[in-house]
Design a protein around this nucleic acid. Structure first.
Lengths: 227, 227
DNA sequence: GCGACGACTCATGTATACACGGACGCCGCC
DNA sequence: GGCGGCGTCCGTGTATACATGAGTCGTCGC
């Protein structure tokens, strides 16, 4: 695999996992040494991350962006516009098979959610597969590109609800309704059920979010932000 | 200004203007010589253009992407979701002043449209300013980012209606209605008026689009695709 | 003691040289 | 004559050296 690709995947994963918290300074030479490649692929990775909105260039290096409560609200506002539309399109243009399969898997979600970390990870795989199935069924490359962007940022704040079993169980039920609506070809219901799901997710995210920013606050030098 | 920035702006402008048509091969060394910089900033520019969706890497070089009729439909599908939402948000969150100014300028549009190329350019400046005002009033950075992406691709197909005065006059009227709705604080009307406008624009774009792709077809070696 | 100016330092921006890999064309064989 | 394999070439991927500019720290003057 190309070094630039690996550098991008590594850094992106670390930002999404919170290993590199908001405010962390990412300098090219520093990351070059750490990742064992030269500055060139690191530069490429940082540029891509900046285009994704995960980092932003500043005077003394590229820093990991923060996510404020206002950002969460704004993100969900966009998600609602995009995902409600995508769900409606998917209901009209679907192939049944993938959604039937996801419905079965979602039915097992409550059991998974009782199995600890591994179950959680598998649960989120189902949700991600649903997102992909809707994206594919919507059959719109521009919409798909926009969806991937919001899902990237959504993954960052997913950590807020990861260990909230009650919310996750409820979310699984909301997802089931969306899938049922798509299978039934009911575009309006799929769209509105998505709206409902996002509204509840947002409420939960805001309740779980710290006062200032997601992940560790930018001020503290707690070691999570060193290279 | 940075060389990478200039290279990006130059290439992007040439793609949007159709100077570099779909299928044009953009090789790094070749463009380095033409733009008078080294490969490094050209590489950066090509990566950014690829992220924008204006070019895509292939085996024998990066090529300018084509826009099929299906792409136009897909793009307008996304535009509708984004711009209708943005117009609605702008109606709720607006500051009146910029929209009052744009309304005045739009009122002069019919006169501008009779003044040839310079007038056309000024007309599109008004439309672009309206887009920016809505973006700013919506006060949502994620939505703004998505809007800039679709507006980038929209600019590519704008050439299809640029010399269709009847359509442009009608579009000016549709824009006025959107602005009026925003000023009146009527989110639903702003949203629906945007829907109407995009529906009509799409109809016109499809009627004006050649059978295969926008701009010159990828097969012909007509000189518009050399370096 | 405070403020401003200047030099130094460090990080990014750019250029270039080398490495690697695939694509195309040519040649030989079937 | 067509197909398959091999070699060459070309273009991107990576590493590195140099240029540039902004930020910071120290010092000097007021």
């Amino acid at each position: 695999m190309r070094a630039g690709e690996r550098a991008y995947d590594t850094l992106r994963g670390e930002i999404l996992d919170g290993v590199l918290g908001p405010g962390t300074v990412l300098q090219e030479v520093e990351q070059s040494v750490r990742l064992g490649v030269s500055r060139t692929p690191v530069r490429e990775a940082l540029r891509r991350l900046a285009a994704d909105g995960l980092v932003e260039p500043t005077a003394r290096g590229t820093i990991v962006t923060a996510i404020s409560r206002a950002d969460i609200v704004a993100l969900y506002e966009l998600r609602e516009a995009l995902e409600a539309r995508a769900a409606g399109l998917a209901a009209r243009r679907r192939a049944d098979a993938p959604f039937l399969a996801i419905r079965d898997r979602l039915h097992d979600a409550p059991r998974l959610l009782a199995e600890g970390e591994a179950g959680l990870t598998r649960y989120f795989e189902i949700v991600d597969d649903l997102d992909r199935a809707i994206d594919e069924a919507a059959a719109n490359p521009f919409l798909g590109s926009a969806l991937r962007s919001v899902q990237l940022h959504s993954a960052r704040i997913r950590r807020l609800s990861r260990h909230n079993p009650d919310r996750l169980r409820a979310a699984a039920g909301e997802h089931e309704l969306i899938v049922d609506a798509i299978i039934a070809g009911d575009a309006e219901l799929a769209s509105h059920a998505t709206h409902v799901h996002l509204h509840r997710s947002l409420t939960n995210a805001l309740a779980s979010a710290p006062d200032d920013d997601v992940a560790a606050p930018p001020g503290a030098d707690d070691g999570s932000r060193v290279a």
